[in-house]
């Protein structure tokens, strides 16, 4: 990791997003237990709602799935009417997980126990 590039959520988690009618869901899965503990504490529904405020979510719900070291966010009313009515390119919120994973982690202290194990798969 270079010193100039800030740590981002993607350094400690991966994820996927999709649509549920006019709502979007964003699943964020930590790479480690330490990372999951950090996510549970810091990645609140309010933080996510503010981060995506340009999409005007009416509310953001957060669910926990500790077995997957994951948080699942449901962003209500963010898809501009949903699949067929939305005027956006991303009618189904498919890219929102990547947008959230770009979130800079300002409060991060000790990140080493949270990053993905190197050489997890061959490279």
């Amino acid at each position: 990791m270079s010193t100039t590039e800030p740590l981002r959520l993607r350094d400690i988690a991966h994820g996927r997003s999709g649509d549920k009618g006019n709502h979007a869901n964003i699943a964020i899965l930590a790479y480690t237990e330490a990372g999951y503990a950090w996510l549970r504490k810091h990645l609140t529904a309010e933080i996510v709602k503010n981060y995506f405020r340009l999409l005007n979510p009416s509310a953001v719900l957060r669910y926990e799935a500790a077995n997957l070291k994951a948080l699942n966010f449901v962003l209500l009313d963010v898809l501009g009417g949903g699949a067929s009515l939305s005027l956006r390119t991303d009618t189904q919120g498919k890219t929102l997980a990547l947008a959230l994973l770009q979130m800079p982690l300002q409060q991060m202290i000790a990140v080493e126990p949270m990053v993905r194990a190197p050489g997890r798969t061959e490279r």
Partner: peptide, 20 residues
């Protein structure tokens, strides 16, 4: 392609509301 903990984890929560 690949099937691993991460690909399955991501898909398990795909288009899900309350995972419980």
């Amino acid at each position: 392609g690949v099937v691993n903990h991460e690909t399955v984890g991501e898909q398990l929560l795909y288009e899900v509301g309350d995972p419980a």
